[in-house]
Design a protein around this nucleic acid. Sequence first.
DNA 1: CAGGAGCCAGACCGATCGGTACAATCCCGG
DNA 2: CCGGGATTGTACCGATCGGTCTGGCTCCTG
Lengths: 202, 202
Amino acid sequence: MTARTRRGDETRRQILEAARDLFHKQGVVATSPDQVIEASGTGKGQFYHYFKNKESLVHEVLLSYLEEIRRRGGALDYDIRSWDDLERWFLAQLALQKSFRMTRGCPFGTIGNEVTENDELVRQDLSLIFEVARGKLARFFVQEKAAGRLEPRVDEEALADYCLAMIQGAMLLGKVKRSGDLVESVVAESLAHLKRYAGAFP
Amino acid sequence: MTARTRRGDETRRQILEAARDLFHKQGVVATSPDQVIEASGTGKGQFYHYFKNKESLVHEVLLSYLEEIRRRGGALDYDIRSWDDLERWFLAQLALQKSFRMTRGCPFGTIGNEVTENDELVRQDLSLIFEVARGKLARFFVQEKAAGRLEPRVDEEALADYCLAMIQGAMLLGKVKRSGDLVESVVAESLAHLKRYAGAFP
DNA sequence: CAGGAGCCAGACCGATCGGTACAATCCCGG
DNA sequence: CCGGGATTGTACCGATCGGTCTGGCTCCTG
């Protein structure tokens, strides 16, 4: 399934790239292999040469996202070390959404909402992505608590989930309402909440 | 397009019912007219007799949801009058999700995330639904503020958006992770935030 | 420069997509 | 009890779905 030459590798990458964009734009179900092939400027032969089927393509796309989050290679930096970083992380998502004129949501949310009981593989991929993202965010809260700058009674993992849920919901509403202000307002509200836990706890 | 006899009305209702469930379960794009026809126990003739096409069926389904929210007929009661009502509203959504063994999200979120640039009609329907829901929630905050039980500087509409975004995000994550606890935790966190605005403001 | 592995293009496949046509049936008012 | 609109079931349509297969091309290697 994997490419063995530079040229093959490039082709594979193009397919992956096109799929990623189309999935983000119109969802997985609404995207046909033919569309991916067309958008990537390749052919049916290559598609099924490098990917077993459509589901496996989705799997690979999600893996590539996961890698980006882990190695902070993508558009978003999940390595939060300060409150400013956290705010930047939120606003970067809004900026990304705005760059598509508010016509798209979060790639993971878009795919996640399409998942049904029969897409167990994809569901687990997404679950893992959210798990990793949660870990990265939680690390920040753990750090703050250890430094005595966060209320000791808060659950860091719960706060991380709170962040993820909030940005997902905000981006979904933002997409439906085509409003960046809505997203901004929700983000601000949530940040205000989080910061209330901050302070000095000797 | 509308039924003219009792029997026709019943048929139309069955189609609508089946469509509503399938859209919720697997999304709009993944649902074909044939599936709706089969699930409703009707025929192709009836389907295209009562609905112009698939898009118009989606439109009608969303209209029926809108009606439910307005006339508080559905599974959820949007007429919030107390903090307990608000908490119940949150938890009712979780209960609904749990009743499907955490395999579904919010019907509006599911459909909303499928919307593309070409589905302007559906997008506006959803936008209206969220608008109405927001209005109902905001009314509660307005009431509280007027009674001097809410900080005067808060923006009631922003708080309502915050509630909607949170529940959307929580249900999405809950569906992907198949975890009700996750949803519960996020809801609790959000409620805690909101209640911090409460108090006595003479 | 011959051979073969890897890569590529597209014809082709059965199934299903969203939708139409049309004849048969129901059922209500006169 | 009958005329006619409402309702119903099904055959059928072109297009597209996800996927297979075959035959030719490229390019590295011996």
